[in-house]
């Protein structure tokens, strides 16, 4: 089974669970959690069910295409259901069965791993799901986002698609995976990994990144002031990615790190608060 079959299986499974199948968001994000389909929809009281593939960028994880496990961009399959169903663990296990995994023959464990994202003021509790010692999913009951207590409680299930596929194909290198019958992960991604690693670690111009950071920061605030919350949030995503790039260039000291994260969080928290208060007015 190729990676695209895995994606199709998961899409089919979660569509049957009533999830709307979103398309990947078109701004760089570090994780599926950060896209508007998760961030805005977990706020407030309205029920929500969504599933989507989200390319996720983590510049510091770049390894020039030389490490068989680490890449600066990977693909997450993200599921959000609000309120979290009482039998969500069982539903999740069924999704693995739907991908052809015979759970009775393996060691599957829900291993304590709470999640938090200081930049978007969010945290939750849950597990990393380990399959024969391999982490395949992050499973989280969100408790807070944008600095706000959430209720009803959403559950987030994030599959690491490459990890899961390596398990299914029994391969030792990410680049050996089949995306489809004819196209390998190497064909699609190796050059990208090599060039982006060069960019992330060496070529990105620090000063221009810093300038861009300041520009987006100002833009976000003026958009918040005009109550244009979705565009303002896009600016925050840009800021988060610029922060990650500066970090991989080694241009952020320990003190600055705390300061910059606090600045982004400040913007995001404003957006979350306004969004919730405006939603109440509908």
């Amino acid at each position: 089974m190729a990676l695209q079959d895995l994606i199709m299986n998961l899409q089919q499974f979660w569509a049957k669970q009533g999830c709307y199948l979103a398309q990947s968001y078109d701004v760089e994000v570090g994780a599926g959690t950060m896209t508007p389909d998760t961030f805005f929809r977990v706020l407030g009281k309205r029920p929500w069910r969504v599933a989507y593939v989200q390319p996720s960028r983590r510049p510091t994880d770049g390894r020039y295409g030389e490490n068989p496990h680490r890449v600066q961009k990977h693909f997450q399959f993200q599921v959000i259901i609000k309120p979290s169903p009482l039998d969500i663990q069982d539903i999740y296990l069924d999704s693995l069965r739907a991908c052809g995994i015979k759970l009775e023959e393996h060691d599957l464990r829900f291993d304590e791993d709470d999640w938090e994202s200081p930049t978007i003021g969010a945290w939750g509790v849950g597990w990393q799901v380990m399959l024969d010692g391999l982490e395949i999913t992050q499973f989280t009951y969100f408790q807070q986002a944008g600095g706000l207590d959430l209720f009803p409680i959403p559950v987030e299930i994030t599959y690491g698609l490459e990890r899961l596929e390596m398990f299914l194909e029994g391969k030792d290198s990410i680049y050996d995976l089949d995306w489809s019958k004819d196209v390998s992960y190497r064909d699609l991604r190796w050059l990208e990994e090599k060039e982006f690693s060069e960019y992330n670690f060496k070529a990105a111009d620090i000063e221009r990144l810093q300038t861009a950071f300041l520009l987006y920061q100002k833009e976000a605030q003026q958009l918040i002031d005009r109550r244009l919350l979705l565009p303002a949030y896009d600016c925050c995503l840009k800021l988060s990615h610029l922060f990650n790039l500066l970090d991989s260039r080694g241009a952020i000291s320990v003190t600055e790190r705390v300061k910059l994260i606090a600045e982004i969080r400040h913007l995001v928290n404003q957006i979350a608060r306004l969004f919730v208060s405006l939603e109440g007015e509908d």
Partner: peptide, 28 residues
């Protein structure tokens, strides 16, 4: 030595799974 939440591993799938992940980590 690992401990699985299981009753048996007749096809050595669990063992091989652990070995594969471990090898990657040791390589790092």
């Amino acid at each position: 030595v690992g401990v699985a939440d299981q009753i048996a591993d007749p096809k050595f799938l669990i063992r091989q799974g652990y070995e594969r992940v471990l090898k990657a980590r040791l390589e790092d």
